[in-house]
Design a protein around this nucleic acid. Sequence first.
DNA 1: TGCCGTTATACTATTTATAGTATATTGCTA
DNA 2: TAGCAATATACTATAAATAGTATAACGGCA
Lengths: 113, 113
Amino acid sequence: MRPVFKIWLENNGKVFGEGPLEILQKVEKMGSLRSAAAQMGMSYNKAWRLIAALEERLGYHILEKRVGGASGGGSKVTSNAQQLMKRYSDFKEEAAIMLEKLYYKHFEDFEGD
Amino acid sequence: MRPVFKIWLENNGKVFGEGPLEILQKVEKMGSLRSAAAQMGMSYNKAWRLIAALEERLGYHILEKRVGGASGGGSKVTSNAQQLMKRYSDFKEEAAIMLEKLYYKHFEDFEGD
DNA sequence: TGCCGTTATACTATTTATAGTATATTGCTA
DNA sequence: TAGCAATATACTATAAATAGTATAACGGCA
């Protein structure tokens, strides 16, 4: 038996979590939402809707988007979103460690399994 | 913006969490799964399937069930399950406090919202 | 033995989430 | 100005989760 957890941020509905973090990391690396989605095996359509929903709930943009041009365009993570990524990521990492410890504290002598 | 989290236990799939805890608490109070479900506004069918799935994954019974008889029957939480309830409940409560603190540590000076 | 309220379980329906397909638009470049 | 690769968005299709309905079986008791 093992503990599993999910942590996310809410504002008017879910605003940031594991999924968005991963997408944004890929966008930083690839330079476009389309190729980021492709690399994750996710359809561009899904990725786009996910980002759109987040931006609406957050009330500010997490991607600077350019349409057209030499390369067709591309997307860049805003500095606001970069901060959010770092904070959420650190927060989650620490949480994982604490929860693991807490689990052992409460369950190490449990005989139910 | 605020942090939201879910914690549960897994064995071969989800084995215990917030929902099961609440049902079992109600069963203890009411004496039957049917009336526990009713009180939660949940169909008996759903409650029954939930319990059945849990028992299969845990490998032991969490309810002692009596069918028929004067009162029609009833269910009682096994002592194994009682332990599980207490430990999970304490674990989750502490986790909530720790995560709240951790959130403020990482986000108190965040200007993104 | 007939009634009652419970557990047990199959089967169907509905809703929700997720995924895919198609098409328009943009703006640099050859 | 034609082509390219990206964003933008509507519309449809599919899958998965969730909920509901119906029915059988049980066993005390009047």
